[in-house]
Nucleic acid binder design. Structure first.
Length: 502
RNA sequence: GCUCCCGUAGUCUAGUCCGGUCAAGGAUCGGGGCCUUUCGAGCCUCAGACGCGGGUUCGAAUCCCGCCGGGAGCACCA
């Protein structure tokens, strides 16, 4: 039958069971994440491991959204474990970052349970280190960083690798006792100096760092590296699945190797996702931290930082960020997306809630000659929901319009939206009241000073209709033909809003 | 250079494990139209993709081999 060829088979089938030839269009439901390997409902334990060097930004979103989504899907637990080992000179810990991270997660709707700190767990790491050293599978190395690197490159073992266990343990005690300065000794795992992957040749597990830690001060001077601390904590905390970016695949190998040596049975499954990048956007905590310190950015919620705080300030909904991230699934592709994709998601969510108002950036005064006496006009708060009511806009013969519109339409007939038709100029000529199919522009009288902070940090200044002065902070509105914005500050003198997107 | 990972429309993604209902689905972007007193939303519509070359098979996006392209790691950072 099978070597008959499709056409013959089809003909045969048409003869015996024609209904089977009907094309089945399976409807595509909402996108779902693939299942986690070996996941058991209500028994999944995941962890979030932020490094507290600053608030979370959009580039971190994939990690926390996926972890949260899977936790909820399996009714599991999500631990927040601050990865606050001592770090490096270039990436110092920031005391205020702990709260900034939590604030961001809470805004994002990430429901974490227990909060833990790596810096509280150092004694546990020491215990495990001693177990490991006792097996002879790790050693204390006194080579300097440069020597170590060169040996690694040359696949050459150093003298420390073959020293005996007693000597190694004595050196470890000496490390803890403070007999080594920074850079003078490290603990290394014996993997294989000839391993084909140069990244996997006797990696460092502990090093000496005599910096002050924001939580535990100078209590420790021997600090674990990420791979080792997680080998300990993933096991001890009963983590079932580790979801991490694929930049951390080597860490899987390291953790696995350590568990093999110490015969740890309970191990998490590793799941990776590709690197997420944003087009035309360079995310760097250390850079924006520096720029905030220098006063070049206004703070951690400056739109140029792309922190969660800054997204909130612009009126981006957490649900939009979540949908945006989930749309990438769990693929291992490295992806680069434009922020526009996030905006599209957000626009769907805020459009129905955002009432419409006129904002006129960089205004130009226009006197309308021949205007009948009119004191106010009405316009819908939202064109798609007439039931929401109307807003009253004071009108008059002296109005202000955006310079851009003025320049573009000067001398032409335009409609001042919801008001009247004029031939536009400094002295405009009234034509008629009734609506017409001509370009419509926004206008104001008795406008309130309005500053619109743009994503690039610049401000668009102008006037908006008086009602904007009675909006509340956090209201998200649409300035017609300008875009969506969140009201950030309202005072008698002025309104400040943050631009979200068109 | 070495190791690992990944290649479906401009972008993101479903499908790839278990080859045929895939003449490849969705989203976004772009074109056109309708509607609308916004350049927003909504509705309709058009355009657009299996990196390349071999092989296996009646049949390949799906399996195999080779190539090409992209990314990550190769820190005493995380």
């Amino acid at each position: 039958m099978n070597d008959l060829g499709l056409e013959t088979q089809r003909a045969e089938l048409a003869a015996i069971a024609p209904e089977l030839l009907e094309k089945i269009r399976h409807d595509v439901g909402p996108k779902e994440l693939p299942p986690l390997p070996d996941a058991v409902d209500a028994a999944v334990v995941l962890r979030l491991a932020p490094y507290p060097s600053g608030p979370l930004h959009i580039g971190n979103a994939r990690a926390f959204v996926l972890n949260d989504a899977y936790t909820k899907r399996y009714h599991g637990k999500l631990l927040l474990v601050f990865d606050d080992t001592i770090g490096s000179e270039e990436k110092p810990l920031l005391p205020e970052a702990f709260d900034q991270v939590k604030e961001g997660l809470e805004w994002a709707g990430v429901e974490y349970g227990e909060v833990l700190y790596k810096s509280d767990r150092i004694p546990l790491h020491y215990e495990w280190a001693e177990k490991l050293l006792a097996t002879g599978e790790a050693y204390v190395c006194e080579c300097d960083a440069e020597t170590l690197r060169k040996n690694r490159e040359a696949m050459r073992a150093c003298v420390h690798r073959i020293q005996d266990v007693d000597e190694t343990i004595a050196m470890w005690k000496a490390m803890l006792a403070g007999e080594y300065g920074e850079g003078e000794a490290v603990v290394r795992l014996k993997t294989d100096m000839a391993h084909p992957n140069p990244a996997f040749r006797d990696r460092v597990l502990f090093r000496v760092a005599v910096r002050e830690h924001p939580r535990v001060g100078t209590r420790y001077r021997v600090w674990p590296m990420l791979e080792f601390s997680w080998a300990v904590d993933d096991a001890l905390l009963g983590i079932t699945h580790v979801l991490r970016g694929k930049d951390l695949v080597m860490e899987d190998l390291m953790e696995t190797r350590i568990w093999d040596i110490l015969q740890v049975d309970r191990r998490p499954r590793f799941v990776h996702f590709g690197i997420l990048r944003f087009k035309d956007l360079e995310l760097s905590k250390s850079r924006y931290r520096k720029e905030i310190a220098e006063g070049r950015l206004t703070g951690i919620d400056d739109p140029r930082t792309w922190t969660l705080q800054s997204l909130r300030r612009r009126g981006i909904r957490p649900a939009a960020l979540r949908e945006f991230v989930l749309s990438f699934g769990l693929s291992l592709n490295d992806i680069e997306v434009p922020a526009e994709t996030l905006y599209a998601e957000n626009r769907k969510m805020i459009d129905k809630d955002a009432n419409r108002y006129f904002f006129v950036p960089d205004p130009v005064v226009v006197e309308i000659a021949g205007l009948p006496p009119i004191e106010r006009v009405k316009a819908p708060l939202h064109p798609d929901f007439p039931g929401r009511g109307v807003r009253e806009i004071p009108a008059g013969s002296k109005v202000e319009v955006a310079r851009e519109d003025f320049t573009k339409f000067r001398g032409q007939e335009v409609r001042l939206k919801d008001f009247c038709n004029v031939v536009l100029d400094h002295r405009a000529r009234f034509i008629s009241m009734a609506n017409k199919e001509i370009p419509k522009i926004q206008w104001v009288t008795h406008g309130v000073q309005t500053h619109l902070v743009m994503p690039d940090g610049t401000e668009s200044r102008g006037l908006s209709e008086p009602l904007v002065g009675s909006l509340k902070v956090d209201d998200v509105v649409q300035f017609e033909r300008v875009g969506f914005a969140r009201i950030d500050h309202v005072s008698k003198a002025e309104v400040r809003a943050y631009f979200a997107h068109r």
